[in-house]
Amino acid sequence: MANLVGNALRHGAPPVRLSMDVREERPDVAWAVIEVTDNGPGIAEEAMPHVFERFCKASTTRTRSESSGPGLAITAENVHLHGGRISAANLPGGGVTFTIEIPLHRDIAAIDDSTAGPR
């Protein structure tokens, strides 16, 4: 998340927004859905399928730095290691939204056992 917010501040334009929600999927699984949105120039559509690849620099129009771009690949790997998903989408009026979805597993049996008291 820190890398996405940092990228939005460096390469996008204000305001940068961060939101989090929980999406219920089943009684035992929910997803933490985190979105980082900026109002910058967006990412070229032809670069979008490669944005999470190592050393991909999406566009010289999007960046004000000399970075080689491994940050999004590292972010994607961290998300995947947690069983999650990450995506990027350009917004119709400009800007980009990066969405991270991380599974929140609920062990109902463990919750029931912990609240049952001593045996």
Rank of each mutant, 00 (worst) to 15 (best):
P49T: 09
G71R: 12
R119D: 10
G69M: 11
G69R: 02
A8Q: 03
E46K: 15
N39L: 04
P103Y: 06
V29I: 15
S67A: 14
E77R: 14
V79F: 12
V51F: 08
A8I: 07
S59Q: 05
D21K: 15
D38Q: 01
R17F: 09
H50I: 04
G71S: 05
K57L: 12
G93F: 09
A73T: 07
M20A: 14
P103Q: 01
P49D: 13
R85A: 14
E24Y: 02
R26L: 01
H50V: 02
T60I: 07
H11N: 12
G117W: 10
T61F: 10
A2S: 14
V96A: 07
G71Y: 03
W31Y: 13
R23A: 14
N39T: 14
V5Y: 04
G94Q: 04
R62W: 10
G83H: 10
S19P: 09
A58R: 00
P118C: 07
D28T: 04
L81M: 11
I102N: 04
R10M: 12
N39G: 05
H105G: 05
S67M: 10
L72M: 15
R26G: 00
G40M: 03
H11L: 02
I74Q: 05
R54F: 10
V96S: 06
A44F: 05
E77W: 15
T115Y: 15
C56P: 00
T61R: 14
A110F: 06
A32L: 15
F52E: 01
E35R: 11
E101I: 08
E24R: 07
G95Q: 01
W31M: 12
E35L: 08
A110T: 11
L104A: 06
A30Q: 12
D28Q: 08
R85D: 13
R62G: 13
A2D: 11
T61K: 09
S65K: 04
P70W: 15
L18I: 04
D28E: 11
V36H: 03
A109F: 09
N39I: 01
P15S: 08
I111S: 09
P27T: 03
L91D: 05
I108C: 03
I108E: 09
R10G: 07
P41C: 10
K57D: 10
A30V: 05
A44I: 01
F98E: 03
E35Y: 06
G117H: 06
R26P: 00
A110D: 15
I74H: 10
G71Q: 03
F98H: 02
V96P: 07
P41M: 07
P14H: 00
E53T: 09
A32Q: 04
R26M: 05
I43A: 04
G42H: 05
P103A: 09
N7W: 01
M48T: 07
G117F: 11
E25W: 02
G6A: 12
L9F: 05
V33P: 05
G40W: 00
N3V: 12
G84L: 09
I100P: 00
V22E: 14
R54L: 03
A13M: 13
V36L: 07
V79K: 06
P14Q: 01
E45R: 11
A47K: 00
E46F: 07
R64A: 14
L104S: 01
K57W: 02
S65W: 01
R85Q: 13
G12W: 02
I100S: 03
